[in-house]
Nucleic acid binder design. Structure first.
Length: 419
RNA sequence: GGAGGCUUCGCCUAGUCUGGUCUAUGGCGCCGCACUGCUAAUGCGGUUUGGGGUCACCCCCCAUCCCGGGUUCAAAUCCCGGAGCCUCCGCCA
């Protein structure tokens, strides 16, 4: 949700942001008009309510004819107040709707345009030259006895799978390593609910353009989360935080659920695009002035994690049109996938500035003792998909796989060999 | 699944039966001032949150007693619905 003060002070910045996202700048003017109408409606209702309050006091003291007269006027006034309140709540709803329709203001420097207009910021590591036929992650995992897609489909349908034996162990080792790093960096480990209420899902901005991605349990009016960002954002909803000791940082370990509607035919093989996977997600609450610096810190921890599994990657600055509604800027780390000869997203960190926090009403007390809306940020530390990059990049001619050195203590093996 | 209790401005709490000076009481905490070698103690004053007016301050207006409806000239208070927490019973990993 966009700050109304910012809207009034600098509507042109918002129009520019809309254009960069490829969306209608007219939505800004619609919001301005709705804001003005609401202010007028509130003013009228306030005046009438003040009059009614004064009248009420008089009636309380009046007796006889005077009282009868005042009561008659009171009835009339009550009708006017009611009408004014209806008008106010309509204007309120219209404003909220217009406000929710507008995505976050993108940060200066974010490339304009759509999915393919990202800016590559950096390449780290060099893709390995293979002098033998490269196996893809499905072949590798299956021969290691780590994946059963067929039975996944039998039990739950397409895009579901069993991680079996070493596959499951590998995921547990990877996520444990990621979580240990997060804890060492000062994050509080969290195992959150993966079912959340509508207002939490709505507050994080996932029920807008991406509503079709979200599983919904109609009988219970709950949603399955696609990332622990959702419960971690909801964790402090409605609260006033003490950030005097620095940002509040949480690392969520959760299963994530995505419908993958509209992705038929994409990545149908293996575990790249699935309905259910596990993820370690970093989440920060910090003062808005510190958000861009915090964003870089989150990116830094992602890079450490990628270095730890020794996978070549590049960092991209996602274009405005490819940002979620909540994000003001997003950096993706894309790992090299040898079988595809291209980079695929392994981690993603978004700066949501005050957009989510305003919807979820998360504030902090600043140095002057005033309550201000916080900024929220999130970033991926590891997911099931990382297994793809790890196995493919470290495969050997005989189909075995070298375990990255930092992962070995968690897995208890140096080399994975086909069964 | 069933029965009952509770929810008041940071925390605790009075007020709800019997609607109106409730513009919500008191304590704790916190802030300011006074007094006192310092601290403590004591005294006095202040202290919900959000929106709007105001260049800003002072101040003024509106809303806010878990949430949403209703009754009424008027609701913390009466009625209906819902949420959360707690207790007990039943059922079940």
């Amino acid at each position: 949700m966009i700050d109304l003060k910012l809207l009034r002070d600098d509507p042109e910045a918002l129009r520019a942001s809309q254009r960069a996202r490829g969306e209608d700048p007219g939505a800004v003017d619609a919001l301005l008009a709705a804001d003005e109408r609401r202010r007028e409606a509130v003013g009228r209702a306030d005046t009438l309510r003040a009059e009614q309050r004064q009248l009420g006091k008089k009636i309380g003291q009046a007796r006889g004819d005077e009282r009868t007269e005042l009561l008659a006027y009171g009835k009339e006034l009550a009708a006017q107040v009611k009408a004014a309140e209806v008008a106010q709540s309509e204007a309120d709803e219209a404003l909220t709707a217009a406000q929710r329709a507008l995505p976050n203001l993108v940060i200066d420097g974010v490339p304009a345009g759509g999915e393919d207009d990202y800016a590559v910021l950096e390449h780290v590591g060099t893709p390995r030259e293979f002098d033998f036929p490269v196996r893809d992650h499905v072949e590798l995992l299956e021969s290691l006895g780590g994946l059963d897609s067929e039975r996944g489909a039998k039990v739950a349908g397409a895009r579901f799978y069993f991680l079996t034996g070493i596959g499951a162990q590998l995921q547990l080792a990877l996520l444990t390593m990621a979580m240990n790093k997060a804890i060492a960096a000062g994050f509080t480990m969290m195992i959150p609910p993966v079912l959340v209420k509508p207002e939490i899902m709505e507050g994080t901005g996932f029920l807008g353009a991406h509503a079709a991605e979200v599983y919904r349990l109609r009988d219970d009016d709950l949603y399955l989360v696609g990332t622990s960002e959702v419960p971690l954002a909801g964790y402090h909803s409605g609260e006033i935080l003490d950030l005097s000791a620095g940002p509040k940082r949480y690392a969520g370990w959760s299963t994530c659920f995505r419908r993958e509607a509209g992705s038929y035919g994409k990545d149908t093989r293996g575990i790249i695009r699935v309905h259910q996977f596990d993820k370690i997600e970093m989440f920060s609450y910090c003062p808005p002035d510190d958000a861009e610096a915090e964003h870089q810190r989150l990116l830094g921890w992602e890079r450490e994690m990628l270095a730890a599994v020794d996978v070549p990657y590049r960092v991209i600055d996602t274009a405005a049109g490819d940002l979620g509604a909540s994000a003001a800027r997003k950096f993706d780390c894309e790992g090299w996938v040898p079988s595809q000869g291209r980079y695929r997203e392994l981690s993603s960190t978004s700066n949501c500035t005050t957009f989510q926090a305003r919807r979820l009403n998360v504030r902090y007390r600043d140095g002057d003792g005033r309550n201000q809306v916080v900024a929220t940020l999130n970033g991926t530390l590891a997911t099931t998909r990382w297994i793809v990059a790890i196995l493919e990049n470290h495969q050997r001619p005989d189909g075995s796989v070298t375990v990255p050195a930092q992962l070995r203590p968690f897995l208890g093996q140096d080399v994975l060999t086909p069964v």
